[in-house]
Nucleic acid binder design. Sequence first.
DNA 1: TTTTTTATTGACGCATCAATCAATAAAAAA
DNA 2: TTTTTTATTGATTGATGCGTCAATAAAAAA
Lengths: 196, 196
Amino acid sequence: MPKIGMEPVRRKALIDATISAIGERGSLDVTMSEIAGRAGVSSALAHHYFGAKDELLFATMRHILTELNVDTRRALHSAGTARERVSSVVAVSFSDDQFQPEIIAAWLAFYVEAQKSTELRRLLRIYARRLHSNLMSGLTGILLRNEADRVAETTAALIDGLYIRRALKDGVPDAQTAIALVEDYLETKLNGRSLP
Amino acid sequence: MPKIGMEPVRRKALIDATISAIGERGSLDVTMSEIAGRAGVSSALAHHYFGAKDELLFATMRHILTELNVDTRRALHSAGTARERVSSVVAVSFSDDQFQPEIIAAWLAFYVEAQKSTELRRLLRIYARRLHSNLMSGLTGILLRNEADRVAETTAALIDGLYIRRALKDGVPDAQTAIALVEDYLETKLNGRSLP
DNA sequence: TTTTTTATTGACGCATCAATCAATAAAAAA
DNA sequence: TTTTTTATTGATTGATGCGTCAATAAAAAA
């Protein structure tokens, strides 16, 4: 009993299923059948809509990146001062939507996969550049360009590092603590300083 | 023409081959044949000495961890002040032996694999705890325990984050820059301060 | 010298999966 | 009403790769 207009519904369901499967397995080593099963369809249908497994994985990573971008833009929009812009970028990275086991596992797994796939590497570089640029959008109002660059680089690395440690479920248990560490760094680096 | 006493030689060769194979592929998705080929033996021999692929991978990670530990102990041994102890731990993390593409790719891949394997996760936690404790061995001479803990946590996350960014071959190109960023953080966090 | 141990491999079985395809059926268009 | 398009799957194929095993041979022990 096929209903018409199922394509977007299935695509969404398959991408969600991919994220949750990756989250549970902790790696991209999930079968198409597993994913399709979670989405309530056959593996043949997954192939029908995405062609190959690579493309489904790629679409999934793009989806995660898009969500992050949407959240970040919203947060930046409602940030007043330059200092608040920086904090809002950090806050989004550790928000409930982003800093959850499933998403973190996916990030980690995709970082590894990016070693093989040129397209995925391209995608992750876009993320890295966006993060840098978003941080800079606040930092350039507080520090000189040169110093701002270094602080942005460090903050980005710090965020990535805290993600990894969360994946290992060791140290830094919650988002609260993670934010506190990054903010502590930013405070000691920015406090009292402001461009004329 | 089998010579006697080959076991340790083969084990070493197979582990080295595993590292270089992982380095090239960028993931643990390397076949036993590929590894064995690089080591100049048949895949059957690899199975003979290591039993299963899991065990070869496990032995490889343990080897990397052991090397890192040896280097770190040596560095700590020749460090005078507390401040120098901290810097020496950082320096080893980005030394030529550790901060090379092959090893970094392996770290990343093993982080992912640790999601599946309990034993591997245990191993990586040992590393995390050692790193923390090594950093603390210097920091406790400079900061109060509470603050030292936070700085150690941040420094560890920063190191991990810089590793990842290196893996993506984007930003932070060389070890020199990576060290500079970590040291810059430590400076702003430690300078002028010292326990009575 | 015979036996046991150590080193080594080619061939093979077996399981897993990605991807394809033919078949079925409902909706929409002609 | 006939035809085409869209949705869907069970069955199958083909490839890949781990792990095993019997066979070979040299060294060491008996």
